[in-house]
């Protein structure tokens, strides 16, 4: 089997003395949506943060396009083409939507920032309308769009989302998932953590079910949805 585009392999580690992740593996291919689901406290967010370098791993490796990036800081990983949208505090509330996007592109030295910004406005038309408004004054769903837009400004090859639909209404959630599919179609890999497991698996090419920091099931989204064991334990029947 060929090496996946991004892989966090056999990751073991935690924030302090106690390990949260145990031999956990996550991977995603270009243009693919990979979803991490599992019960509360399963270490879903931790696993994704580990891939992004926000957590010190005792064992395991993280490789992007075949290159070992385990020693890199999160900031350096951004430069390597990884985008990260934290679950909370993911926008600059006191700055306008346009400024948020501009700050997202802070590390870019090329002249294409305006083009990328237009692409993001095309993806999220409401942001174009509200581009001179302060991001903190927007609704929850619009804030998430700003957050995703900010992360896309670096033109990442992988976009990592930590519970992007937390606290938004079901309609907004569907809308957001549609946009995520659209992003993936443009060739960007998506790795995201989701509470709403069923809906997330529906759009996922690949699903990772984590329990207590370990891989329990790994399969395509469809297969996981069809698996009676998974349905019973994690999708509420």
């Amino acid at each position: 089997m060929a090496e996946p585009f991004l892989i966090g392999e056999n990751m073991t580690g935690g924030y302090g003395a106690v390990d949260i992740l145990h031999d956990c593996t996550l991977s995603v291919e270009p243009g693919e949506i990979a979803v991490i689901v599992g019960p509360n406290g399963a270490g879903k967010s931790t696993a994704m943060k580990a891939v992004f370098g926000m957590l010190k791993l005792r064992q395991g490796s993280v490789r992007l396009g075949g290159e070992d990036i385990i020693g890199l800081t999160p900031q350096a990983r951004v430069r390597k083409g990884m985008g990260f949208v934290p679950q909370t505090h993911n926008i600059f509330t006191g700055m306008t939507v346009a400024e948020n996007l501009e700050m997202g592109a802070f590390i870019r030295a090329d002249g294409g920032i305006q083009t990328t910004m237009e692409q993001i406005y095309d993806l999220f038309p409401i942001l174009r309308q509200k581009r001179h408004q302060k991001a903190g004054e927007l609704s929850g769903g619009q804030r998430q769009q700003v957050a995703v837009g900010r992360a896309l400004m670096t033109q990442p090859r992988v976009l990592m989302l930590d519970e992007p639909t937390a606290g938004v209404s079901p309609i907004v959630m569907d809308e957001l998932f549609d946009r995520i599919i659209e992003i993936a179609r443009s060739g960007i890999s998506i790795l995201m953590v989701e509470q709403n497991a069923r809906q997330a698996l529906e759009i996922a090419d690949k699903g990772f079910v984590l329990v207590q920091g370990r891989n329990r099931y790994t399969d395509t989204g469809k297969a996981l949805l069809a698996d009676p064991e998974v349905r019973k334990s994690f999708l509420g029947g």
């Binding site: 999160p74 900031q75 951004v78 990260f84 505090h89 926008i91 700050m103 802070f106 590390i107």
Partner: peptide
């Protein structure tokens, strides 16, 4: 934190 993520 977000500023750090943005490479500032």
């Amino acid at each position: 934190d977000l500023a750090l993520l943005s490479g500032i």
